[in-house]
Amino acid sequence: MRSLRRRVQEILNAADFPAEIFTGVPVVEVHGDTEALVIGHRGIVSYAPDRVVIASALGPVTVSGTALTVYRMNRERILLHGRVTAVTVGEGEPC
């Protein structure tokens, strides 16, 4: 499954198509160190001011920092405010 998704992604990249639309992989944008935007999430796994874990198609996306807060959230995107120090994509359990 994962190899198929990777294969589709390679084809879409070669055709200059936005891969996240077809594959559902999350897009993570970090604006400076004060804002992090996760598009294509699958919900918040855990929330703490120093660590927010967000479920995605690639597994949990972990945003670390200080004074993190969910500024805006809808079914598509989560906007985090605070001081962002790291974003990692790793294993986790979606909610």
């Binding site: 919900g43 855990s46 703490a48 807060t69 500024y71 989560i78």
Partner: peptide, 23 residues
């Protein structure tokens, strides 16, 4: 409680000034 936030997001229920007071 994070599960509530996810459900709010799915139902397009706006929330803000989110603060945590323990897990």
């Amino acid at each position: 409680p994070e599960r509530c936030l996810n459900r709010f997001a799915r139902k397009d229920l706006a929330f803000w000034r989110l603060q945590t007071d323990g897990p």
